[in-house]
Design a protein around this nucleic acid. Structure first.
Lengths: 148, 148
DNA sequence: TCGTTATTGCATTTAATATGTAATAACGAT
DNA sequence: ATCGTTATTACATATTAAATGCAATAACGA
């Protein structure tokens, strides 16, 4: 894995600190790795790149999950039983994860927002109240036009 | 788990044979279990019901996967890293017919089928073709009434 | 530079998923 | 109905991802 330009590293350092976390080596390594990735990577895929550099599996595992909790990464499952991690854009303005539906490509992992999607239910349907109240996250899995 | 009426058992037997497989006890047990389930069950959930009756974990595991390969079951992952299995309708004509959305409780993991849910999109919306064509899986995440 | 404490490194655990193989049972043929 | 073939099972065991406890370490504010 190539190393990132110093200014990008510094930007990552900043972001980590802004999230209230310490900018440690393994965090920077994990984020650098995902910055260079073209698609979401699983823990295993991240380790293929970081283990040769001496990083610890369990630590990187924790780092990935921590950074996902801290909203620097998105943790997603494309339906194949692997947690994949993807760098989130720096300023997710007004983009609360559960405001609108998301389309996830099971081929490449690309996520697309579907703000115009709505759900229709017969009044008679027996469904959880949270669904009636729209207090739900909607995920649609399929193939994007490129992967179709 | 109650036992199924004899005629339903016989129908399952038939279906297994039609798929070119032997109608064995564990296959009937697994299918009976899923016939009575209101939602897709994981291997573990199936075993909660079948282990007390003396069925073997690994065998039922293989049975579930075999029957999924044989298109008697659908094997799906609702995003929580568990393979769940759901009985498919007998004659999958048109195939989209028994494709339906699933609701998963983020509290307890309970899964509920949402056959009556449909998606609505403005014609103008820019979305992947697979979504227009309904070649997608829909997952709704929220809290069930108990966990709300 | 130092002290606090978040974080790591390493060992270990858990849980789901998966498979090898001898014994068993389903089912077509007799 | 019985028998022989062979798919299938039961049991043991392997693999992999995911997770955690804890002492050692290093980040960062003072």
């Amino acid at each position: 894995m190539d190393t990132l330009p110093a200014d990008q590293i510094e930007a990552l350092r900043e972001r980590i600190r802004r999230a209230g976390k310490r900018a440690t080596g393994s965090r920077l390594a994990a984020l650098s790795c995902l910055t260079q990735a073209a698609s979401p990577l699983s823990h295993g895929e991240v380790m293929e790149r970081l283990e040769p550099q001496g990083w610890d599996r369990a630590s990187i595992f924790r780092v990935l999950n921590d950074l996902a909790d801290a909203k620097l990464l998105r943790r997603l499952d494309l339906g194949d039983h692997l947690w994949r991690f993807e760098l989130l854009a720096d300023e997710p303005q007004g983009h609360a994860e559960d405001e609108h539906a998301h389309f996830m490509c099971v081929g490449c992992g690309e996520v697309q927002c579907l703000p115009e999607l709505s759900l229709v239910l017969p009044k008679s349907a027996q469904v959880p109240r949270s669904l009636r109240e729209d207090a739900v996250q909607v995920r649609v899995l399929g193939r994007c036009d490129t992967c179709a």
